[in-house]
């Protein structure tokens, strides 16, 4: 399926990415060629294939117990910005 530049803009927004006007033609062309590849799937006869259970193995579950200790300092050591023990982001509400 060919994709249009306007759809690329929407897709970039949904993906939380930026596609600028300089590259949009290239991005559109390359994405279209990948979608042409995956369109080959439509030729497959799959009407009778049930994928509600894709694997024969059951999901392993565990008890709902706390297993981790509080590692807030370790985990926040690599954060771009911390404020009073919280991850900080730009102001959202005036």
């Amino acid at each position: 399926m060919a994709i249009k530049p306007a759809e690329i803009k929407k897709l970039a927004s949904l993906s939380r990415l930026v596609v600028d006007d300089k590259t949009i033609t290239d991005v559109t062309d390359r994405l279209s060629s990948v979608l042409a590849l995956v369109d080959q799937l439509q030729s497959a006869q799959t009407e009778s294939i049930d994928v509600s259970r894709p694997f024969h193995i059951a999901q392993r579950l565990r008890e709902d117990e706390i297993t981790e200790s509080n590692k807030i300092d370790e985990l926040q050591a690599t954060a771009p910005e911390i404020y009073n023990g919280f991850f900080a982001v730009p102001k959202m509400i005036d």
């Binding site: 994709i3 993906s15 991005v27 497959a44 994928v51």
Partner: peptide, 27 residues
């Protein structure tokens, strides 16, 4: 590019045609 392809295949209106179909082919 791969993030955008994935987002496209999972987006409303395309999920069954792409992701659902691919899972059937996987089987």
């Amino acid at each position: 590019r791969r993030i955008m392809i994935g987002t496209y295949c999972l987006s409303a209106g395309y999920y069954d045609a792409y992701y659902g179909k691919a899972q059937q082919v996987r089987k």
